[in-house]
């Protein structure tokens, strides 16, 4: 719709300008008035003809519709087609409540852990010079590159009954795999790049000058962190935490391997959806899935709002003439 506005106005603009132009006006005066009436986004020489533009926009929209909008609306439709009462019944089922509680618990443990780790990693990578920094950055990315199932397998191989640490853990009565600690561990592993990945480029762009200034002015390391670094990265951090949280609550693969699928005990929301579905309890399955869908929507809106804020912060930083590394 927005695109349609553009060519039409562009075509009409010169004509309007010519018509309104007083006959006595010199050519030089007319030229700027034509320019002023052009649409806000001028046609650049690199821009493609409208046909190509529309074809591409149409293609992208069709793709979005087919692969995201239709499935999403199917979830909502299936969840609600038999009425709100039945939807609510599926949600308040004790197993569903347990799954919700477990999901919240896992997120409540793993997100703060990853926020702490992410801040520490970003601080160390952007504020110090040392060997092997590149390796560290690659290691942080590892969970993004490894299939979540493998991440779960690693936990089982390490902590499972037949794993490396399994016998020792058994002797001491510590249960990790097929219990809540294992789910937390797998989730932490899968979601740990989010905060560090977001903060590193942001802190790099901000430079160290403000922290150096704080140091020279007499602030201790903790004071610098609390009064200078964290306030400067707060929006970036919040953005990363939201993404991290969404992934922590929605994680399936890794958690599926270590959870053991014990109903009401080690089932998180995504696992619960799968179990219900496999038992042909479609309505209940979709009802629970719709909760995850709501989570996605909330995440999306929060993300958008933060992006907007952050862009403004970056624009301000740019206007301030933030140094790259002087």
């Amino acid at each position: 719709m927005i695109g349609a506005f553009d060519p039409v106005t562009a075509a009409r603009a010169p004509a309007t300008a010519a018509a309104s132009e007083p006959p006595a006006a010199p050519a030089a005066a007319a030229a700027p008035s034509v320019r002023v009436r052009r649409p806000a986004t001028p046609r650049r020489p690199t821009e493609d003809p409208p046909v190509v533009e529309w074809a591409l926009i149409g293609l992208a929209l069709a793709f979005l519709g087919a692969f995201i909008l239709v499935p999403a609306s199917v979830v909502v439709h299936e969840a609600l087609k038999d009425g709100l009462a039945l939807w609510k019944e599926a949600i308040v089922d004790p197993d569903a409540i347990a799954a919700i509680e477990l999901t919240l618990l896992v997120a409540a443990i793993s997100v703060p852990l990853n926020a702490l780790f992410g801040i520490a990693a970003a601080w160390s990578i952007t504020r110090f010079r040392y060997r092997g920094k590149g390796v560290l950055v690659s290691l942080i990315d590892l969970p993004f590159g490894v299939s979540p199932v493998i991440s779960g397998m690693m936990a089982v191989l390490l902590f499972g009954a037949h794993g490396w640490l399994g016998p020792w853990l058994l002797d001491h009565g510590i249960k990790i795999v097929f219990a809540v600690p294992g789910i937390v561990l797998a989730t932490v592993f899968v979601t740990f790049p989010f905060v560090a990945r977001e903060l590193i480029p942001f802190m790099e762009a901000q430079g160290v000058e403000e922290e150096e200034a704080a140091h020279v002015l007499g602030a201790s390391g903790w004071q610098i962190l609390a009064k200078v670094t964290l306030p400067n990265v707060k929006w970036s951090l919040l953005y990363a935490i939201i993404l991290c949280n969404a992934r922590a609550m929605g994680e399936f693969g890794a958690v599926s391997v270590v959870s053991g699928h014990i109903r009401g005990v080690t089932n998180t929301l995504p696992l619960h959806v799968e179990i219900l579905y496999n038992e042909y309890a479609f309505r209940a399955s979709f009802a629970v899935a719709s909760l995850l869908f709501v989570l996605a929507l909330v995440t999306l809106v929060a993300k958008k709002a933060l992006e907007w804020r952050q862009r403004r912060a970056i624009r301000e930083a740019a206007r301030r003439g933030a140094p790259a590394g002087a």
Binding site: E209, E210, E212, A213, A214, H215, V216, L217, G218, A219, S220, K227, V228, P231, N232, E316, A317, R320, G321, A322, P323, A326
Partner: peptide
């Protein structure tokens, strides 16, 4: 640096962007 009590003015000033002028001056 924090023990030296030396005043430094940085090339790009390095003012704390989330603090007002008065808060910046009060910081040390």
């Amino acid at each position: 640096a924090r023990e030296r009590n030396v005043g430094v003015v940085f090339q790009h000033y390095a003012l704390f962007r989330h603090m007002t002028v008065a808060e910046n001056v009060a910081f040390p």
